[in-house]
Structures are given as structure tokens and as C-alpha cells.
Design a protein around this nucleic acid. Sequence first.
DNA 1: CCGCGAATTGACAGCGCTGTCATTTCTGTC
DNA 2: GACAGAAATGACAGCGCTGTCAATTCGCGG
Lengths: 343, 343
Amino acid sequence: MRARIEDVAKVAGVSPKTVSRVLNNERNVREDTRQRILEAVRSLDYRPHPSARSLAANRSFLVALLYDNPSPSYMMEVQDGVLEACDAQRYSMMLQPLDATSPHFVEQVGKLISERRLDGLILTPPISDHADLLACLREWGVPFACVAPRDRQCAGVVLDERRAACEMVMHLASLGHRRIGHIIGHPDHGASSWRLDGYRDGLEQSGLRYDHRLVMQGRFSFDSGVVATRAMLSLASPPTAIFAANDDMAAGVIWAASEAGLAVPRDLSVCGFDDTPMSRQIWPSLTTIHQPCRDMGRIAATQLLRTIRDGEGAMVYAKFALCLRGSTGRVPERPRRDAPAGH
Amino acid sequence: MRARIEDVAKVAGVSPKTVSRVLNNERNVREDTRQRILEAVRSLDYRPHPSARSLAANRSFLVALLYDNPSPSYMMEVQDGVLEACDAQRYSMMLQPLDATSPHFVEQVGKLISERRLDGLILTPPISDHADLLACLREWGVPFACVAPRDRQCAGVVLDERRAACEMVMHLASLGHRRIGHIIGHPDHGASSWRLDGYRDGLEQSGLRYDHRLVMQGRFSFDSGVVATRAMLSLASPPTAIFAANDDMAAGVIWAASEAGLAVPRDLSVCGFDDTPMSRQIWPSLTTIHQPCRDMGRIAATQLLRTIRDGEGAMVYAKFALCLRGSTGRVPERPRRDAPAGH
DNA sequence: CCGCGAATTGACAGCGCTGTCATTTCTGTC
DNA sequence: GACAGAAATGACAGCGCTGTCAATTCGCGG
């Protein structure tokens, strides 16, 4: 049978309550007592019983990570980061896939919270932008932290995606591109508008005019990238570079370009956003923007646990990085086929 | 404050123990009593307290899903399946990323089990092939279920990967290929040997000779696919088709082929294994073998829960499916460059 | 209507921990 | 050395549920 707190107390010659104090890092325990107790814990290989702790303390020490169908690699990394932070603070994480468009969405989350006695939630896009849910959580007093939310008035983590997109477009411009297309992400994701704004910033700072014909609506999916690209390539004056709002759509761009017989980057430069593993596994490898997803998961969890403990978590900025790879190149010297000169 | 079991009992006019019986689907409760209790549960919106239940029942109702750095999309799908099965039986799932090569691996798992009071484990490749761990779990009497283990004498789920690989190779042969290369997966994964065996079966059934020069060792990574392909393409008599043991390596094959100026599938047919999302996002889209990962996760969890409940889980076979896509094609009529005829 | 085994229900303790509050011990001051 | 106030420790109840086992009720043949 496993040792219980009472056994530890007996060995250390103190009361169970004092052992509990040490295990929970409470103040007001003399240093020598603490050492004696830790020694007893070690000698008995004592492990506190999570359920007993939860029951007595009236907290579950459990947080849930809510997600709705994002890219698996993104989610997996965020997950690992969250787990890392939770483990370090003796918290557990549970996962909950959800359908944010369901009419019972908020209700389901409420049920989850009360069923599992959750101490807090971590919301990932697009759930982190679900205004109804955020309002309810605030009303219920349930602590939460958001990953990349549109509204930054909460605990969590974001990237300056607008700046990142801007820099990417400026990079394209520096390669000589003057007709740079953009494929917008899913309309429900805050990221889509930041990236679009960044695209406009980048054009402006490069002295290029915004042309609405070069901007297509996508949905963050590979297929939507293909569709948008076919449309853009059939323009009278097609772009020489396309900046897709994520890597999946960028893969769609490369696909559609290959389909149309264009070589990337010779005939068309392509870049994405997210630095998914896939971006390095396609030919040519994709120029994109790296998000430190694992760090972001860790940060979000840390801010959530701070909120739970002290009632105050912050919105932390994570750093992005441009990954310049094979899918972008200098614009060709002579025009391609939309030749204005020559006739 | 939330309703407790006592409140439900009072409303239904029975003892708390009887309510507990109904909630846990125990036998020997009269039907009308059951109905009265369920009605009370509904009217009070009662939710049993998980920690209280665990503490009293001396079980955690928690299983862990152990993984070591597999492909994120694979893991994510397995995860969702496991969650589905656990939810249905009022169990919780926790995730545990691990390093199976660590010298303290088994010890770490043991610590995890006793710390979290786990009721069981689900092992994914390559952990499902870790002989030391399996031996310890059996010795400790810890229920577990395996996804795709080499040794099928345990509860879990597998695919007939050997058969799948065989069919893939036969398909290549039916397209006219006679020099079909293979890139073996990671040596520690059971899947690698099944797929290799299937490759040999496929050659044999197509009347082709096994040629060791056309078989390279890989490690399931994109990079290892690139390296193996470069080596194979530099052979005096290179293959006209390459069957990589997974999609990541197959992506590497396409990459290396593009690098070498070869067009896929015109100059080289390529196929993989796993049907990752990436396989549809590259150009050309990848011919591969689909594994129903989500189903497999669900099945593994179901068998684990059966093991926990009745002490007996089975090894279940899941169904694979060939996905014929753009990366494979008929072998060209006239030889390519290793022209034996001609000059 | 009685008696017996089976089906159904209930009383009670206790799972292992922490919150509350009382008690003891220490620290610094005059 | 006495004393106040702070720091450290302990006693005890109880978190909400289920296991054990005893008590009650039911069904049915004689």
C-alpha cells in the first residue's frame, strides 16, 4: 500500500497538517522542519493522492485545453507547451475538441466546467475569439487564458502577426515583386485580419498600391488556396508573388501553380505563415513565418495558472521569425506572359 | 452550491447508496426506483464529483496516452479517438509525451502511474514495442492497450500493414514498374519490418526479384527520405518507382527527385504510407495507404477499458485503404536515361 | 398464509487530504 | 525576565462519494 500523509507525518515527527503545508509550499514552516519532512517524503517515496487533495481543497487542479479543428501540428505543439507548464505546477491538463459553430457551444463548455470541476480554461483560435463564450466565462468567474485572441484584454499570449506579415511583404518587395497577391484566412479567425492588415502595411511601406483584385478570400484550407490561386492566375495581370495567410493555403498555391505549369519560384514566388512541418516537406520548401507554438502554449498555461492563483494574468507577446526558403525568389528580369511590351 | 448525491437521494426518497448504484449502472435496482432517481438527478442538474468518486472507489477513472514524437497528425487523430471512447465511459484521458530512449524511461512511466493513480495506459508506436516496459506493466498488473505493436499478444489495435504494403507494391508492378525501390522506416518501429516484409511479398507476387541495392534504411523522417533517394538515384540502374515506408519519407523522395530534375510521376513514381494531411498538400499529391487513426484510437481505448473492467481485452484489426493519387503513374514506354538500348 | 432464498435497499465507516481555528513556540523590546 | 505580537504547529472536522455488510422486501412453492 502506498504511504499516506499520516505516515510521513509520523516519520518526521510532525502533524499531517504540517506535511501538507510543506507539500503545498505554504509559508510559516521552519526550515529545519521542512527539511525533515522532505527527507521523510523521500524515504517513504510518498506521492500525495490527487483526488483526496482535490476533494479536500475544493479545487480540481485541472485545466482544459479547448480547440476546434486547427492544424494538428500547431495544436500538438501548443499542447506540449501547456503540458510542460502544468506539470511544473502540479496541475493536470485535459483536452477538449469542440465545434465552436454549434448552437450549444457555450452550454457545452459550461457543462464541461461543472462536470470536471475545471479550475480554468485555455482557449485556442478560433475559440479564443468567441465573444459569447468569453462573456460567459467572465460572468461565471471562470479563469481563462487565450492563445492569439483578437481582443487582447485578457490573459494569454499573442504574436505581432501584423508586423510579421508586413515584414514578409516587404521582403517580397525587396526581391523586386510589384504585384503581390494575398489570400485571406478564415473570416472567423482574428489572425486573418491581422495578416491582411500587415499585408497592406507591407505594400504601403514598400511604396506599392493596394489592388483589391489581388486579394482573395480563403478559409485557411489547402483547397481554398487552390481555388484562390486559380482565380488569381487567370487575371489579365496576375501577381508575381502570392502571400497566403497560412501554410496550408500556400501549399495550395504551389499546387495550383504546378497544375498551371508554372515553376515556383521562377514564375511565381509563394510564401505562407505558421512554419508547419509540411512547409519543409514540399518542393520547393516554403518561405514562411515561424510561430513558437510550444512556447506560446507554455506561456498561455503559465498566465492561466497565475490568474487562478493571484487573479491576474497578463497578455504576453511571443516572437515571430521569418523563414526564408526556396519558394520565393527575385522577380524575373523580363515579363512572363502578361507582357505589356513586345505586343 | 452544486447538488450532492445526498440531495438527489432526499428528492428521490432513497438512500445515497441507491443513487450511487443507479449512477454506476449496478444491477439489482428496481426499474421504478431507477426512474425516480434519474428524474431527481435531472431536476437537480446533479453531476457526481469526480474526485470524491475516485477517492471512495479507489480508482482514478483516468488513463494516459503515451507517445514519443510521432507525426502530429497521426497522434492528433489517435487522441481524438481515444477521447471519444473515454468520454463515452466516463473516463478521463491524460497525455504524456515521453522519450522512449531515455535510460529512466520505464521508471518514469512507473512514477507517472503511481503519481496519477492511473487505471491504465494506451501505448503508441514506438512505445508499444518497448519490451522492457511491457514486461514491467505485466508484472505490476497495470492494464494497457497498444496501438500497432509488433507483438500481438496483448489488447489493442493493429492494421495488416504487411498486406497493405504488398498491395501497394503489386499496384506499382501493375503499372509496369519492374525496378521498385523501398525506403525502410525507423529500425525501432515494428511497422518498418512489416512494411518491408510486405514490399518483399509484393515483389514476389508480381514475379519480381528482390534487389538489395534498391532497399535503403531510413528513419521515417523527411530528411532520411531525401538522403536515401539521392543514393538510389545515383545507382547505375536506378528505380522507376520508390515505395517509402511513410509519407514523410515519400515527401523527401519527391523533394530529392525535384532536386535532381526528375518529374514525378513521369520519371519516377512515388508512394508512401499513412495518408497524412500533407500527402494531399504536395504536388503531385501522394499515392499512399490510409490508416483509420481515429478509429484505431477509439478501438485501443475501448479494449483498454474492457481490460480494466473485465480483465480481458482483444487485439482488433482495423482496415487500411489504398489511396491512389498523382504521384504514381505508368512506367514510360522508352527507357529514361539508363538506356540499355539505343547507343 | 408460512417460510425460504433471492432481490433490493440502507446504515455506516472511511477513502486521504486540507480548511479553520486553537494552541504552542519563538522573537524582540523594555 | 516579563510580555506582546508574530510565527509555527496541531486538532479536528469534513470534502462527496462508494465498499461492506446488515436489514428489509419480494416472489413463490407448499
